[in-house]
Design a binder for these strands. Structure first.
Lengths: 340, 340
DNA sequence: CTGTGGGATGTAACGGGTTTCATCGCGAGG
DNA sequence: CCTCGCGATGAAACCCGTTACATCCCACAG
C-alpha cells in the first residue's frame, strides 16, 4: 500500500519493476486514488468557489470563465454557487466552503453596503481565515478595518465619469440617468461618477433625470417608457448597464424615436452583443473575465496572509460606437416631450 | 468525539445538556466538520461536474445555470470545468471526477461523432460507472451499444426542420444555409433538418448555398461577406446559430441590404438579445437551462442503473419576430447578386 | 430491594491514503 | 571478508469523522 502510494506520487524512489507492476494493476483495476483519503492524510489543494447571485447574464458568465480558467491553470477545481439573492443561502455556502476546505471563496457582484453587510463580511472573513480559506470580494469595495480579505474591483466611478464626460463633451446637458438599485454598491458608484462628471462640466443636477431601477433589460424598457410618457426633457440617456440600454433602445424604437438622431444612449459593460443592437452601443468596457482571473490569482498566489489583504482596482475602457452623437445633429434634436 | 458527532448529526439521542455544551464549543472554536473525513467514513454526496468547451456564450451559461440550480436543490455542489476543445484535458477531467467521486459528469455541447469519439465515451462511461458516477451526454446523441449513459438532447433536426419550413412556407426558395462544422453532431443534425424541409417542399438542393463554418459571429460575418462577393443568388439566410445570424446581420447591413426587406434571416438558439438586434431575429428557442436541469435530474434521480440509461429529447420552439418576410415584399425582393 | 430495560456516553474499528521509521538486501570500499 | 551506506519495501501511525459495540447509570416494575 505504501509502495503503491510512492509509485503513484513519485515522491520516493521505487524500483522500475515495482512501478511497472503498480501501473499495470492500476490499469487493470481502473483504480483511482480517493481524494478524500488523500485530503485527510495530507495534501490536496482545495477548490475555488465562486458565489454569485446568478450565472445568467453576460458579466457573471465572464467572471466565471475567468475564475475557471485561472483556477484550472493552478490545478484547482472551481465550484459555482448561486445565492439568488438569499443571504441565508450565502451564509450556508460560506459554511459549506469551510467544510470543503476551499482555497478561496469569491463573492462577486454589487452588494448593499449597510452595517449588517460589513458585519456579515467580517464574520465570513474570520471564519474562512480560521480554516485557511481566503475571502475575495469581487466587484465590491474593500471592508473597513483590518480583515483578511482580498478585494478586486473595477473602477465603477471612474468609468461612469468617463462615460458621462463623453456625453457631456458631445454637448448633452439634459441626460437621463437610468441607474440601478441605489443601495447597491456598483449602482451608487456609477451614479457618483456620473454626478461628478456633471459637476465637472458645470451642469446642474436635475432630480427628475436621476431615475433608479434595476440592472435589467425590463427595467430599462419600463423606465424609458415612463420617462417618455412623463414628457421628460432630455437629449441623452445614460444607462447603468448595457442590458438597461437594450431596454431603452427598444422603448425608444417603439416610440418612433431615432438613436442617436433623436436621443443618444450610453451603456455600461460592453456586453458581447452591444455592437449588434439596432444602434450599436457606445459603452464602457468592463474587464469581467480579468476580474475573475485576478481574483483567483490574488487569492492563491502571494504569501501575504499578513492580516490585511490585497486590493486591486481594474480600469475600464470607453468603447465608442454609434449610439452617441451631439444633440441636434439630426431630427428634433432636443429631447422629447413624450406623446403629450 | 463520538458524542460530538451524534450531537451534530442528531442521529442518536444525546442529552440536552451535552448537546448544548457541544454547540457552545463548536461556536467558540469555529469548528466545522471535515468533508473529507466525513466522506471517508460514510455519507457525503458527490458533486455534479459540468464539462464543456467554454463558459462564454449564452447557451453554455444557461446550461450551467440549470445544472447549478438543480444540483443545489438536491444539496449537491456543482463543478464547472472547461476543456477548450482539448481531448487530453477532457480525459483528465473525467479522471479527476472519478477521484472526486462526482455523482455525475455532464458532458455538454456538440461533438465530432467519429469512431474515436464513441470509444472515448464508452471508456468514460465504464470508468465512471465503476466508481458509481454517472455519465451524462447533454446536447449529443446517444451512444451505440448498451452503456451506462444518460442522454439529454434537444431536437436539433426537428427544430431545423421547423425553422426551414417557416422560411419555405414564406415563399423562399433560394435559402443560404450557413451551418457549423459538418463534423459536429449538432451542426449535422441541424443541416439534416434543413435538407429535410427542402425536400418536403420540393425545393432542389443547391450545393453553393450550403456553406459550412463555425457557430460564431465572426464566421457568420465572414461567410456572409464571401457570399455577397461571390454574387450568390438567395432571398433568405438560415444561420446555424443566433451568433452566426448576428454576424450575417452585420455584414448585410454593411452591404447596404435591408433585413427583412432584401434578405430574410432565420436564427437558431434564441439568445437573450435576439429580440434587440438591428432587426429582431426570428429564431428557434432551445431550452438550454432546461437541458441542464434535466441532465442533473436524470442523473441523480431514478434508481435505473439498469445497464443502459435514460434518453430524453427536449423540444424546441419557433419564435417569430421580424427578420423573416416573404421574398419580394419590399425592395429588390430577389436575393442579391453582390456588388458585381 | 433487586432485576431489567433503555437512554446516554465512552471505546474502538474503519475508511483509504501518506509519511515516518524500521528493516532488509545488496554493492562498494576498507 | 567484513562493514558501511543507500536504495527499496514493509509496518504502523496518523488524518478525522461515523458507527457498531460495550458500558454505565438510573428509573421503574415486580
Amino acid at each position: 500500500m505504501a509502495t503503491v502510494s510512492r509509485a503513484l506520487a513519485g515522491s520516493h524512489p521505487v524500483s522500475a519493476a515495482t512501478r511497472a507492476r503498480v501501473m499495470a494493476a492500476v490499469e487493470s483495476l481502473h483504480y483511482v486514488v480517493n481524494v478524500h483519503a488523500k485530503a485527510l492524510s495530507g495534501g490536496v489543494a482545495g477548490p475555488v468557489a465562486l458565489v454569485m447571485e446568478q450565472i445568467i447574464g453576460p458579466s457573471f458568465a465572464d467572471v466565471a470563465a475567468g475564475v475557471e480558467q485561472e483556477a484550472a491553470a493552478r490545478g484547482r477545481l472551481s465550484l459555482v454557487c448561486t445565492t439568488h439573492g438569499d443571504q441565508g443561502r450565502e451564509h450556508d455556502l460560506v459554511q459549506l466552503m469551510r467544510e470543503q476546505h476551499a482555497a478561496a471563496v469569491i463573492l462577486v457582484g454589487g452588494a448593499v453596503l449597510d452595517e449588517a453587510y460589513h458585519e456579515r463580511m467580517a464574520e465570513y472573513a474570520r471564519a474562512l481565515d480560521a480554516v485557511g480559506s481566503r475571502l475575495v470580494l469581487c466587484g465590491r469595495p474593500p471592508l473597513p478595518g483590518d480583515l483578511p480579505v482580498t478585494v478586486v474591483e473595477y473602477d465603477n466611478r471612474g468609468g461612469a465619469f468617463q462615460a458621462g464626460d463623453h456625453l457631456l463633451s458631445a454637448g448633452h446637458r439634459r441626460i437621463l440617468y437610468l441607474g440601478g438599485d441605489p443601495a447597491m454598491s456598483t449602482a451608487e458608484q456609477r451614479r457618483a461618477g456620473h454626478l461628478q462628471a456633471l459637476r465637472a462640466h458645470g451642469v446642474p443636477y436635475a432630480e427628475e433625470l436621476d431615475i433608479p431601477g434595476t440592472y435589467t433589460r425590463a427595467s430599462g424598457y419600463d423606465r424609458m417608457r415612463d420617462a417618455l410618457k412623463a414628457g421628460l426633457d432630455f437629449t441623452a440617456v445614460f444607462a447603468g448597464t448595457d442590458m438597461v440600454a437594450t431596454g431603452v433602445l427598444a422603448a425608444l424604437r417603439e416610440a418612433g424615436l431615432d438613436v442617436p438622431g433623436d436621443v443618444s444612449i450610453m451603456g455600461f459593460d460592453d456586453v458581447p452583443f452591444a455592437a449588434d443592437l439596432s444602434t450599436s452601443l457606445t459603452t464602457l468596457r468592463v474587464p469581467y473575465e480579468d476580474l475573475g482571473r485576478t481574483a483567483v490569482r490574488l487569492a492563491l498566489d502571494g504569501e501575504r496572509r499578513t492580516s490585511g489583504g490585497d486590493h486591486v482596482i481594474l480600469g475600464t475602457q470607453l468603447v465608442i460606437r454609434q449610439s452617441v452623437r451631439p444633440p441636434g445633429e439630426k431630427g428634433t434634436g432636443r429631447g422629447r416631450r413624450g406623446r403629450t
